[in-house]
Amino acid sequence: MAKLAIIIASTRPNRVGLPVAQWIETEARTHGGFDEVELIDLLEVDLPFMNEPHHPRLRNYQFQHTKDWSARIDAADAFVFVMPEYNYGFTAPLKNAIDYLNHEWAYKPVGLVSYGGVAAGTRAAQMIKQVVTTLKMTPLFEAVSIPFVHQFLDEEEGLTPNDVMVSSAKAMFDELKRVAEALRPLREPS
């Protein structure tokens, strides 16, 4: 059994991340490489700014919201971060959500679906690779980068991808499955 968690990084009103994530969730389910696909919306998770008194590596969580977040991330075998680019970087809610935990992220691959204007969120994608590798995650080369994202959006239809986006998503899911399986022995309790 392999579980994929897709995390929506944007929490602001009128965000583009929701329709992008709904499309990538559909692609993940169509792909069929994961037995379970969970869409996690950081707006709904609503983690306060890091408020745990102990370092996350100790897993000595005091608050229920952290215990719940830990269980959701621990249960996943692979991730996709659906993320915009804010001022050449990734979102503060995503960084906060990552920083709440430590061991739960380790030895799991992460695919990046970025979106924006001309740069398609790729600068944010590059920045987050430094963060996730520190947590022993494996960021994939295969990614989905959506330039000028608004051209693909319709209020009634959601996101309508082009062929490049669809083939990029398939390549990303193929590699996520392969790397998640390769890393599985490292995730087993020692």
Rank of each mutant, 00 (worst) to 15 (best):
50 M>E: 03
80 V>L: 12
78 A>V: 08
52 E>Y: 07
96 N>F: 00
107 Y>I: 06
70 S>Y: 03
117 G>T: 02
58 L>S: 00
104 E>M: 02
97 A>N: 06
77 D>I: 11
65 H>W: 00
109 P>A: 10
69 W>K: 09
65 H>K: 05
100 Y>G: 02
147 P>Y: 07
76 A>K: 13
112 L>D: 08
82 V>K: 09
55 H>R: 04
73 I>W: 00
75 A>Q: 12
32 G>M: 12
56 P>C: 08
138 T>Y: 08
81 F>P: 05
87 N>M: 08
147 P>W: 07
62 Q>R: 05
85 E>F: 08
91 T>L: 13
127 M>P: 00
103 H>P: 00
134 T>M: 09
125 A>S: 14
39 L>P: 12
114 S>D: 06
125 A>T: 08
68 D>P: 05
109 P>E: 10
97 A>F: 10
116 G>K: 02
62 Q>E: 13
103 H>W: 04
37 V>L: 14
109 P>C: 13
145 S>D: 11
84 P>D: 10
119 A>P: 00
145 S>T: 11
113 V>M: 13
71 A>M: 02
50 M>Q: 04
75 A>G: 08
130 Q>N: 14
38 E>C: 15
117 G>D: 03
84 P>S: 13
78 A>Q: 13
67 K>G: 00
108 K>F: 01
140 L>S: 12
56 P>D: 11
144 V>P: 04
34 F>R: 14
121 G>T: 09
138 T>H: 05
